[in-house]
Amino acid sequence: MRPLKIIVLAKQVPDTRHVGPDAMKPDGTVNRGKLSTVFNPDDLHALELALNIKDRIPGTQVTILTMGPQKAADIIREGYYRGVDDGIMISDRRFGGADTLATSYTIVQAIKKIADYDLIVGGRQAIDGDTAQVGPQCADKLNIPQVTYVEEILEIKEDEIIARRRLETGVETVSAPYPVLMTVHGSSPDCRSRKAKKVMKYKYARTKTEMRKGDPVLEALHLKRPHLVIPEWSVEDINADVTKIGLAGSPTKVKSVSSIVLTATESKVLTDSDSDIEGMIKELIKHHTIG
């Protein structure tokens, strides 16, 4: 089997799984400063799926692509630590505020610049919005088929790839020709951990913007080891139409947000004593809730 060229789409997200009480401001808006950022969990599964193909077919090239503010270069470094060959960062203030339509347009412009690929993989959805839209929208804009909710790659053939999908009510095995875009389900294998050797090799990888403050030691290192320079693409680099990116290119807007308040019910507080529990059961039977 010939080696494949794979692009992994990954995103840095606020860790919405661990929202503390101070994560919301009194006005109901999100206090982003109080949320730590993480590698989007489903995207880690997508990364594993790509690296697993690389294990199976030596010579396979894995490129990780992310879009976000400067801090998101962490995603590229995490990719390197786990075994990707290349990383590309899409970053420009003008991309900010994008909804899924504007995001998919931007990512597709970058993918068109990469041009040569057999497979694009991304997580099923990101935990900051849970929309699951960017994958299918990218596939549409690239005019290639999509296979969503992939759990496992069963077979990699010369002209097609066979995958098992996880649906709400069961599983489905499908074949798709290249190039194809897949979104990866959280039920697929967890991502391998960092490799110490790779961490040593790439821990000083930086984008040009991250180097802006000037660090002579790092600069000298980057001159000597060009693989440590993370490519950074702007609006111009990917030839993006400014009316289709960022807030301007986003049809969906947030009109308002409100915090969810649990409505307090008047509760009867009981212990685990026999009399308390028997009393409750009798009440439930009397009111025909049970029995």
Binding site: Q133, D140, Q146, Y149, S250, P251
Partner: peptide, 20 residues
């Protein structure tokens, strides 16, 4: 799993907004 697979593809074709 059907609607979430299909709707974004159509929203992209129609260049319109989609709320999940």
């Amino acid at each position: 799993s059907v609607g979430r697979d299909l709707a974004p593809r159509i929203a992209s074709k129609l260049n319109c907004g989609l709320t999940a």
